[in-house]
Amino acid sequence: MNYAMGLAAVLSAAFGLAAPLYAASEPETVAPISINEGEIELATEAEAPAHLNGALPKIWSGWLFRDATTQSMQMDDFENPAMVFVDQGLDLWDQPDGAEGKSCADCHGSIDDSMKGVRAAMPKMSEDGTDLWSLENFVNNCRTTRMGAEAWGWSSAPMESMTLAISMASRGMPVDVAIDGPAQSWWDKGKEIYYSRYGQLQLSCANCHEDHYGDWIRADHLSQGQISGFPVYRLNGAGVVSIHERFFGCVRDTRAEPFAQGSPEFRALELYVSSRGMGLPVEGASVRH
């Protein structure tokens, strides 16, 4: 056996083990996100939830994997470019719409009180328990059945502003989604999708975000793919990006045909990915590049 063959055998053996050969890299620091000179502090590290069975040593906010300039934009609410969209969401909250002439506030009152914890528990089973709903589904259900208004597009501007404003009411609360009972089969499906290698590039979510967070693909610093900061303001497209919009872009970039935004597949994936971040705080208006 020559040296090259020997190495191949060693590498093959290493790949056969559970531990990846080219391990992920842990963040250098795990400082909290300190906002408005310490007025609000969001933890960036939490214990990995038990249902991950050791797949991750700890869980970390995507904020830790961004450069200092991007990080600082989230550390002051006046400089945070997402806040403009939060304000638009707050305006929409008070604005009557549809045949009933009602606003969100007419039934729910204050967004801070009535929506507290809502984002942290999303997605969750629908009221009749037959479907898994994202926050967008709950908003549209209210609009169509109670307000007599048109449904908003999944990643339309008003939907993104509204979900952002609702997320702010959970800022700092730990992600806490139900994955048992009727949600169990959705979680199983989401997990299957997470580990499936899609497209001509044959990449799964796990290839980058479980096996290689902290490593670099060209100039991109890979994160754990946590969605506790969503919806996020992305500098990349200078706008708000929903969870499913990000899923869509990621799967597209494997040279694949992605699932549709709002599809059962992406809602299942949203539940599974949310569950990987249980314990990290909802960031509300976050900034990524």
Binding site: L11, F15, Y198, Q200, L201, Q202
Partner: peptide, 19 residues
């Protein structure tokens, strides 16, 4: 390397949801 993340550069079929 059976579990390699590396894309297959000379392969034309057998993909999941190819785009």
């Amino acid at each position: 390397f059976p579990d390699s993340m590396m894309p297959s550069f000379y392969k034309s079929a057998g993909f999941l949801r190819p785009g």
